Simulated assay, not measured.
Amino acid sequence: MPKACATETAQIGGNPAVCDDDFDGTQYVTTLTVSAAGLITITGQADMAGLVVTLTPINGADGEAAEAGDFTAGFQISSWQCNGSVSGTAQASWLPASCTTN
């Protein structure tokens, strides 16, 4: 849901940081944050402890990572770049297939 919210916010111009307002945590995710630049960070807990996934929106106009000013002005997200980090007992195979590991 935060990804869809950030995409919509980019189209209409606004602050995507509000896209995480209703997140209370789940059995497997302790935090989910969305920055003013649309960067979504998900941190695992319990069985998923040690797993961190980041989704970076890519600005369709220049092919670069979006910035907060892009959201204020309004733009099109052309894609999302997924990166993940794995530590402790977490396994890289738990990351989405489109993610690269750090």
Rank of each mutant, 00 (worst) to 15 (best):
D47T: 12
T101P: 00
S93V: 05
N15Y: 05
Q27R: 14
I12P: 00
F23D: 03
V86Y: 01
A4M: 07
P57M: 09
A68V: 02
E67M: 09
A6V: 15
V18R: 13
P2F: 01
A73G: 14
Q45I: 11
G60S: 15
N59G: 04
A66T: 11
T72Y: 01
I40A: 07
F23L: 02
S35M: 02
S78K: 10
V18L: 03
F71G: 08
G69C: 00
G60L: 14
D20P: 08
D20W: 04
D24H: 14
T26Q: 08
E8I: 05
G38R: 00
Q45N: 14
A17F: 04
D22L: 12
A66V: 11
P16Q: 03
T7R: 06
F71I: 02
T101D: 09
I58V: 15
P57Q: 06
S78V: 14
L39E: 13
I58D: 02
E8V: 00
W80M: 04
A6S: 14
G50M: 04
F75A: 00
C82K: 11
V86S: 05
G50V: 02
T33V: 04
L55A: 03
T30F: 08
I40D: 08
I40M: 03
P2Q: 14
D22T: 12
G60R: 13
